[in-house]
């Protein structure tokens, strides 16, 4: 049961510091407590936990343009942040974690502004049929994080430029451009300021939980731990991910996201395997890669390994990837 609700507003617009703070708050939230963290990033592409950075945005060009590239801890696809966007994070323990209730806070706040907001599916919030908030989740050691964007007046030209890889890829995914699917809240309320939305969020937070939101005591923050995490978040190794000299690639787009498996095969055996994906389930993706490491390069055996090691995490996803491997290996050593 939630017995205390806390609000914390970030004072930086550097994505690595913000993500580090979010991680700290998530990992140190107390039993019976829910923390609402509000933060903004300057000109940043944030990719999902298991995405291939090189695939998702024109890394080089975007960075040359002084944009930040960051990788978050939750699954899902790439998003673009600038100061026209407000991010929210709900941190709580597993027993207190309640995505529906947390989403209700967001919806209530936006509706206070006279905007007809709705929750669609599990991960998005829309107004007028277009998305203004994309949500993602992760859990680590019994601590849960539910975070999302709130588009108030994001520069859509810059967003489109940052997120579009190629028109061909969009077509192959059978999806509309990002721009056609999203909407800024200012389209409904031209006078809306980030501060106004923040005030509504705090108010709605209190109303939904029936408690008085308190400011998080900053004495709880451990500067050393946060700055170490920030350095990790800013490292090339974390952002770009590992690259391996793969000799076999399997790829397929599923209803739940795209999957790309890269395998280094030597002497008929998988020496190393990496899996990239924009799927929301952040835990099963690295497990796909780990499951294959050490396995003989044989379609049947690889497919069975996937089922044996990952079906318990998500039966449908495991079955899909297992079938993909069977279809895309012809038995020959690559």
């Amino acid at each position: 049961m939630i017995s205390a609700i806390k609000v914390f507003r970030s004072t930086t617009v550097v994505p690595y510091d913000n993500i580090a703070m979010e991680t700290f708050l998530t990992m140190h939230v107390q039993e019976g407590e829910c923390i609402l963290y509000l933060w903004q990033n300057q000109d940043t592409v944030v990719i999902g936990r298991n995405q291939n950075a090189w695939e998702e945005c024109r890394v080089q060009r975007f960075r040359e343009n002084r944009g930040h590239l960051a990788r978050r801890l939750s699954g899902g696809g790439a998003v673009y942040h600038d100061l026209g966007n407000l991010n929210f994070t709900f941190a709580s323990r597993r027993a207190d974690h309640d995505p529906a209730r947390q989403s209700e806070v967001i919806l209530r706040a936006v509706r206070k502004l006279g905007i007809p907001a709705e929750r669609t599916g599990r991960n998005d919030m829309e107004a007028g049929g277009r998305k203004f908030s994309g949500n993602a989740f992760y859990e680590h050691r019994g601590c849960c994080c539910h975070h999302g964007t709130l588009m108030v007046h994001v520069n859509l030209d810059r967003m489109e430029e940052a997120l579009t890889v190629s028109v061909a890829k969009l077509r192959s995914r059978g999806v509309q451009s990002v721009r056609a699917r999203v909407v800024n809240l200012r389209s409904f309320r031209p006078d809306l300021e980030i501060e106004t939305l923040e005030a509504c969020l705090t108010e709605a937070f209190g109303e939904v939980y029936g408690l008085k939101p308190e400011k998080l005591d900053s004495a709880r923050l451990d500067g050393t731990e946060i700055s170490l995490e920030s350095a990790r978040m800013a490292s090339e190794e974390w952002i770009l991910g590992r690259r391996i000299p793969f000799s076999a690639v399997m790829e397929e787009r599923f209803p739940w996201g795209g999957v790309r498996l890269e395998l280094t095969v030597r002497d008929g055996k998988v020496e190393e395997a990496l899996c990239w994906s924009d799927a929301m389930n952040e835990q099963i993706i690295p497990a796909f890669g780990q499951a294959l490491t050490g396995c003989p390069y044989d379609g049947e055996m690889l497919a069975r390994r996937i089922l044996d090691k990952t079906a318990c995490l998500d039966p449908g996803m495991a079955a899909g990837v297992s079938r993909m491997i069977l279809n895309q290996t012809d038995g020959a050593d690559p």
């Binding site: 739940w256 998500d314 039966p315 449908g316 079955a319 297992s322 079938r323």
Partner: peptide, 15 residues
């Protein structure tokens, strides 16, 4: 069994 689990995932199918 596996084909059904895969196809049904987006509809909320569970064993």
């Amino acid at each position: 069994w596996n084909l059904l689990l895969e196809a049904g995932r987006e509809y909320g199918l569970i064993p």
